[in-house]
Computed example of a mutant assay.
Amino acid sequence: MKYVAAKATSWLDRLEKFTVVTLCGSIVVLIFMGVLSRFFFHYSIAWSEELARYMFLLGALFGAAAACKTGQHGGIPLLVDKLPPAWQRVTEVIVGICMLVFIGFLAWLSYGTTLRALASGQSSMTTGIPVWVINGGMFMAFSLAFLRTIQGLILGAYRVDKPFVDEHE
């Protein structure tokens, strides 16, 4: 069972990296094309900015989901380090629970907006991409962040006293 879990985690790690790198690289190429098009051909690619915005949003959300596994969230270690060791551990558990509640709430909200966008048939103005596709990507990223936070809590990534080192890196 441990082998299957390790294999699934390794596969998920690679998929996250591929997704984030592909989105970020695509943003660079897309914006570069838009700038060249305006500068040399005096023609603006109207959809490039909107598509780059969607890619940036999804890249940031999937990158944040990947960071949840290793505890690289916006914590306040300077404050937690001042507490006694027992209180540090309590704080870590409370932070983990709060993160799960918050990310779970965001996943639930994005699921609802995805269903509403699907029912409405709305599409974006310049690209024509159905809005439910973008919202569905947000739902997937928040759901992945929820699972990665659980994984990080199990692996001890949120421990203040021991920095987490991912053996797959």
Rank of each mutant, 00 (worst) to 15 (best):
Met1Cys: 09
Ala5Trp: 08
Ala5Lys: 09
Ser10Asp: 10
Trp11Ile: 15
Leu12Gln: 09
Asp13Gly: 01
Arg14Ile: 05
Leu15Pro: 08
Val20Asn: 01
Val20Cys: 13
Thr22Cys: 06
Gly25Ser: 03
Gly25Asp: 01
Val28Arg: 00
Leu30Pro: 13
Phe32Leu: 13
Phe32His: 07
Phe32Thr: 12
Val35Ser: 03
Leu36Gly: 15
Arg38His: 11
Phe41Asn: 13
His42Val: 06
His42Arg: 11
Tyr43Pro: 00
Tyr43Arg: 01
Ser44Cys: 07
Ile45Glu: 10
Ala46Tyr: 05
Trp47Phe: 08
Ser48Phe: 09
Ala52His: 04
Arg53Gly: 12
Arg53Phe: 09
Tyr54Glu: 14
Met55Tyr: 08
Phe56Arg: 06
Phe56Ala: 10
Leu57Asp: 06
Leu58Cys: 04
Gly59Val: 01
Ala60Gly: 07
Phe62Asp: 05
Ala67Pro: 03
Lys69Ile: 12
His73Lys: 04
Leu78Thr: 12
Lys82Gln: 15
Pro85Gln: 10
Ala86Ile: 10
Thr91Asp: 15
Thr91Leu: 08
Val93Ser: 10
Val93Trp: 15
Val93Arg: 13
Ile94His: 04
Val95Thr: 12
Ile97Phe: 11
Ile97Lys: 10
Leu100Met: 12
Leu100Cys: 05
Gly104Trp: 02
Trp108Gly: 04
Leu109Ile: 06
Leu109Arg: 15
Tyr111Phe: 13
Gly112Arg: 00
Arg116Gly: 01
Arg116Pro: 00
Ala119Asn: 11
Gly121Asn: 03
Ser123Glu: 04
Thr126Gly: 06
Pro130Tyr: 00
Asn135Trp: 08
Met138Cys: 08
Ala141Thr: 06
Ala141Arg: 00
Ala141His: 01
Leu144His: 02
Phe146Arg: 05
Leu147Tyr: 05
Arg148Trp: 02
Thr149Val: 02
Ile150Trp: 10
Gly156Val: 08
Val160Glu: 02
Val160Phe: 09
Lys162Arg: 10
Pro163Trp: 01
Pro163His: 05
Asp166Gly: 12
Glu167Ala: 14
Glu167Ser: 14
